[in-house]
């Protein structure tokens, strides 16, 4: 294909000039996506896949606790898409988003040290005062879900600390500061061999629903809505499932 080298050269020039993305259309768009921290690894791969599918669009992510992200939207931080780990955070900005839809599910598990040295059997084990248990704070989704699963199991736990997001809870367990923590099932993948997990049975567990929506204030609302719709495509759901998220 004779024209290829020229295109490649142009692309390389664009890359060199802008430092990111490869241009092919007239308009190059960078979508800023605010996403819940539990989505980190999955969304980074989704971003690459989306760029491969829609070459004029580059996706950039900012990961944080859902309630943090909702506050960023309230404070009108410039962004195009919001993806939260719960409905409540999305509801607080209902008037600022459009085209909201559920795109993934998750559930909770108990993170423990590798090999489960303290022999945690399930949620009821967490009531043991000698066990150092860490959960998310009462206002972050991972903390609310922890409260819900403990209530379903009828277990009273006195946590040592209430952390600001799910990854911090997991870090406490990974570093050995805590013996057990309640985190998302999908978080365990990021810990690798640094942590083990004790499953929470379905009847005690919750179904976490992830929502995505385009922001009304976005300068690229069309592209933002396209990205949100694409999250339900076969390519996107395959990636989400690969990272352990069931999809609708």
């Amino acid at each position: 294909m004779p024209p290829m080298p020229r295109v490649a050269a142009l692309a390389a020039a664009a890359l060199a000039l802008t430092g990111c993305g490869i241009a092919s259309g007239d308009e190059r768009i960078t979508l800023n996506v605010l996403a819940a921290s539990s989505l980190t690894e999955a969304f980074e791969e989704l971003g690459t896949a989306y760029h491969a599918a829609a070459r004029n669009t580059t996706v950039r992510f900012e990961f944080a606790g859902s309630q943090d992200l909702a506050m960023d939207v309230q404070e009108r931080e410039p962004a195009d898409v919001l993806a939260t780990a719960d409905q409540a955070s999305m509801d607080t900005v209902a008037d600022k988003v459009t085209g909201r839809r559920a795109f993934a599910y998750n559930s909770m598990t108990i993170a423990v040290a590798p090999g489960n040295p303290r022999h945690v059997q399930g949620l009821s084990s967490l009531a043991d005062r000698r066990l150092r248990v860490v959960v998310g704070g009462p206002i972050v989704p991972v903390g609310r879900y922890a409260t819900q699963v403990l209530a379903k199991a009828g277990v009273a736990v006195r946590p040592r600390s209430e952390e600001a997001d799910s990854r911090t809870v997991l870090t406490r367990v990974r570093t050995g500061a805590a013996d057990a923590g309640i985190v998302y099932v999908t978080d365990m993948r990021s810990a690798g061999i640094a942590a083990s997990s004790v499953p929470i049975p379905v009847q005690q567990n919750v179904t976490v629903t992830y929502f995505a929506a385009a922001l009304r204030a976005s300068a690229h609302e069309e592209a933002a809505r396209a990205f949100v719709s694409w999250l339900r495509s076969p390519t996107a759901t395959a990636i989400l499932r690969k990272y352990g998220f069931p999809t609708p």
Binding site: S161, E162, A164, A177
Partner: peptide, 17 residues
């Protein structure tokens, strides 16, 4: 020190949360 009301949650942590 982590964050827990009454034990490790100081004013700045309370502001943040």
């Amino acid at each position: 020190a982590g964050n827990f009301p009454g034990r490790t949650q100081t004013m700045p942590l309370a502001v943040y949360l």
